[in-house]
Write a protein that binds this DNA or RNA. Sequence first.
DNA 1: CTTGTCGGATCGTTGAACAATCCTCTACCT
DNA 2: AGGTAGAGGATTGTTCAACGATCCGACAAG
Lengths: 236, 236
Amino acid sequence: MDLSGAGGLTDDRALLGRTSTAERVADILRTRIAEGYFPPGARLSEESIGGALGVSRNTLREAFRLLTHERLLVHELNRGVFVRVLAVDDVDDIYRTRRLVECAVVRGLGQPPFDVDGLAAAVAEGEAAARADDWTGVSTANIHFHRELVALAGSARTDELMRGVLAELRLAFHVVDDPRALHEPYLRRNREILDALRAGERASAERLLARYLDDSRTRVAAAYAQAVDDPAAPRG
Amino acid sequence: MDLSGAGGLTDDRALLGRTSTAERVADILRTRIAEGYFPPGARLSEESIGGALGVSRNTLREAFRLLTHERLLVHELNRGVFVRVLAVDDVDDIYRTRRLVECAVVRGLGQPPFDVDGLAAAVAEGEAAARADDWTGVSTANIHFHRELVALAGSARTDELMRGVLAELRLAFHVVDDPRALHEPYLRRNREILDALRAGERASAERLLARYLDDSRTRVAAAYAQAVDDPAAPRG
DNA sequence: CTTGTCGGATCGTTGAACAATCCTCTACCT
DNA sequence: AGGTAGAGGATTGTTCAACGATCCGACAAG
């Protein structure tokens, strides 16, 4: 039996190759950025971070490169890397992409029943976080929901695109003041979409999703524009 | 008049910071890969390339990392970097993404008339290349056509996604034997799509595009699977 | 207030060194 | 003869130190 081309073990490969120092550093930095320890606009010095983490500059630069590719950092020549500061235009572009891709995924679904296990798990995750008053958790669950939605298309490249786009969107969330007002309404709407898909009503789900994204875009853009204008955190 | 906070020049900032040795090396290698000078499967030796280009190993490795992130190169531990050899699954995934995104772009167009200048230029480019018997040029023009198509959505992130995906697809084109048979039929179909869009017939254009992509996927996957099985170039 | 200049700090790139790994060839044993 | 173990060379992985280039802030001159 020839397994050379088989994909049975491809899932496990992620656990094998995952011991690169640069990736672990990137994980640490990504978490720090996600929790706001490094706010948008902050500069990440090679020397201080490299010294604190005990890694060489080359390794650190590779980690920076990984995060730059994810658009979490921006690189300016001879100036260093900075935590990305989203412009309002970026929020628009992110939602334009989301609407294009996510609606196309729903439209392109085959025959029901659909595999909604991942979606159901994300909805449950969000509702549990809401009960715990953990609105950052709700935000994370919300992102998971949409990642699972895109995963229904079964395309690795599309998955990766949306993973990056949704990670960017999280940068905008960190700047707004009232995460509950921003995320709570979508708990119910996620469940509605899940129910529609579970019932096999593709067109209905697409309509719900389109309205969802349009509403969300308006709200996030407004909240973000206000937060950026406010003197809250002009520079890190 | 106070221009200090104005954004009139912000578009030009991209031209300022754009020079780094590693990026320039990456540009060179990317072009070489695109034109087939480095065929899929070829190993890129650090010493020979670094010596030929006159850059140090560290800089060259940085360029390698950039291209690895773009999926044009693959990195094998302690063995070096190789020009990516696409699997047939990759071709499927690429076309799945293309169909999802490109059709969604056409469907999401607003009211006619549409700005088809870029598309028309790409069609003209392809027809000129065909007259010159330059089938690699036809392939390039074809890729331009679809990039321009996606650009109609007006989303920088979507543009970048498709730029990467189409660059990957070019890797498959280099493996097949008869580029003319592969690319010639799409000259006419590109023009048909252009004409439909010029006439404002969005639905018709979407239908043409969907059929186009399904046909192309079948043909490319078949030609590619055959080429990969053949003893043409087992290893670089 | 603007302009020019200087110095410190940080990044970009190089070159070297050494460890780790892979590939090939040879010698050996059964 | 066939297969195996090991030596040796070649290549990559990783780190470090150094130097030049660039940016930024401060200070002085106009």
